[in-house]
Amino acid sequence: MLTKRIIPCLDMTEGKVVKGIQFVDFRDAGDPIVLAKKYDEQGADELVFLDITATVDNRDILLDVVQKTAKEVTIPFTVGGGIRKKEDMQKVLRAGADKVGVNTGGFNRPTLISECAQSFGSQCVVLSLDAKRVKNQWNVIINGGRTDTGLSAIKWAQQAVALGAGEILLTSIDTDGMKQGFNIELTKEVTNVVNVPVIASGGAGKLQDFKDIFVEGNADAALAASLFHFGECTIQQVKEYLNDNNISVRL
């Protein structure tokens, strides 16, 4: 049986891991490679690295961090941030990433998703989708939380999957860093309309939040950052809790 995944997320800027609240107010959380190795040893199922200012600073992703991480960890990792063309994705994959997150670059030019899926396979194209509640719908937000596109996140998720995205990393800006639980409503809406795995992100604050997002939100994986970075709980604790609650995890 396929297990539910627990994924620590390393948001990076200028070579350091940072963590913000609702995409602002960042604080330093440490060295990416040290953290990556620690999470691997703790039993993380995957890692996600997001170069959160690559798009707005208009620069390439931190390839050396990707290379170093690849040498240190024994689990898969996804890298996102600043992917604008197929060649960007190829560079990141060649540096040792297993999957690549496409966010703003894919929204601005959706054929990027199909080009990458055709060349590298859907399984390594992750749609990184940041959503925020605006009036009565969830909007797609791009440029690292800065630009509201006004378009429906649910519709964009469907379109991106049709174009070839093999997985969705769904971040709720409303719940990000608030530690009041994942956005179950948003996650459920997305998992209902797509047939690819969905990683829920934003809001993990306690053990029960993980259970809720798997049981009620139908998420395939749950991503968390501050909870793990600042030592509030370990990955092992989360997994043991889920196992005790009859949710299949890799122990």
């Binding site: 859907s122 997985e167 795995p197």
Partner: peptide, 10 residues
């Protein structure tokens, strides 16, 4: 099933 299969399986 969800395709691709992504994750840890036995």
């Amino acid at each position: 099933m969800k395709i691709p299969q992504i994750g840890w399986n036995q």
